[in-house]
């Protein structure tokens, strides 16, 4: 998976519901992105928080020490929306290219 995609994936996962680090890792694993989660989530969370796209708060866990919960900021949601549009445009174009064989290639195959 492309390195740059971890940021929008994290924002999307957190936008759905505020979460702490390990919970985010599990959500990514359930979504089939377990390989991406390994070693990348915490640095990316720190980067997004530093950039003002995420904010965090301490919350008692009930079973242990307080957890650090992340939530998206207004800026983060705006970035996520821009990323979504960009991704949809990109995947649409790539899908068109991959599924439609160019006419010139078709002619070559027939001969």
């Amino acid at each position: 998976m492309l390195k740059g995609l971890i940021d929008p994936c994290l924002l999307a996962v957190i936008e759905a519901d505020d979460a702490y680090g390990y919970e985010i890792v599990r959500r990514l694993e359930i979504a089939g992105l377990g390989d991406v989660a390994t070693g990348s989530v915490y640095p990316a969370l720190a980067r997004l928080e530093q950039a003002g796209l995420l904010q965090s708060r301490r919350e008692e866990s009930g079973t242990g020490p307080p957890r650090k919960y992340y939530s998206t900021t207004v800026l983060g949601r705006a970035h996520l929306e821009a990323w979504r549009q960009e991704w949809l445009r990109l995947t649409s174009s790539v899908t068109r290219v991959l599924t439609n064989v160019p006419p010139q290639h078709q002619a070559e195959e027939q001969t």
Partner: peptide
């Protein structure tokens, strides 16, 4: 502190530190 709390839960549920 954040890593400690999360790793406690992760290792408690059978995950390895390397997976985090």
């Amino acid at each position: 502190e954040e890593l400690h709390t999360d790793l406690l839960e992760a290792t408690g549920s059978g995950a390895s530190i390397d997976s985090i």
